[in-house]
Design a binder for these strands. Sequence first.
DNA 1: CCGGATGTTCACCT
DNA 2: GAGGTGAACATCCG
Length: 258
Amino acid sequence: MPELLEVETYRRSAESVVGRRIVAVHAPDDWFTKGATTPEELHAILPGRTVTATRRIGKLLLVDTDGPVLGLRFGMTGRLLVDGDAPIGSLEYSSDRDDPVWDRFGIGFDTGGSMRIRDPRRLGGVELDPDETRLGPDAARVTLAPFRSLLRSSAPVKARLMDQARLAGMGNLLTDEALWRAGIGPRRAADSLDESELRRLHRAMRRTLAVLGERGGSHTGDLQPARVRGGLCPRDGAELRREQVGGRTTYWCPHHQR
DNA sequence: CCGGATGTTCACCT
DNA sequence: GAGGTGAACATCCG
């Protein structure tokens, strides 16, 4: 479930642990703490550290401490639980089941309470001091000029929008919704957009993030109910196309998306 | 039983 | 170098 909007919800929830001292680490899964970090390192480094701030770049949640930065990723099915509560309880894409054995990582605090990631599919992960420079500008904050430059590519515009190294935060649902609102076909070469289309797409993307954020998440788009085989465009009633674009299943309207 | 699902990474092609 | 594809990760659902 997590795209930019969900991770921002997690970040807000995580704000309540700022100022707390870490006293316990739960890291039972060395796959989940892959990459630069081992469970041993987490146990050795985190206890005694105090959380100083929370940040977010795209889909990456950053928990700053007076020691290392904790980078949390949620994959498709990860949720953040703070003091036992999930900010997003019932997920569109998750099942009714909910099992503590899916707690892949957690930290406990001096004040009591905890913060943990529950992720059935283990597609998320934890990293110490993640390389923040590997991410492009955050999609919710990017201005027109950098947006224009990141679209200088012959790749399909959808692929470019979802390339986290170029633009951080746009997932499959948000991207389809933004392109649908902008009336731009996902397969268009990014550098084939003229200036007015570029501005339209930038505005539609920002608006998508604002509106869907207000509604409660990436799955609340106008296009969402029509994302089924044979679904009809909510704007003009044309039958939607369903094809792979940029490696992901893409729904789009052949009538008004050009 | 099979395919696919809000994500990322990597090996391997073209 | 740039893009694209398929696999892998693990679980649930239609």
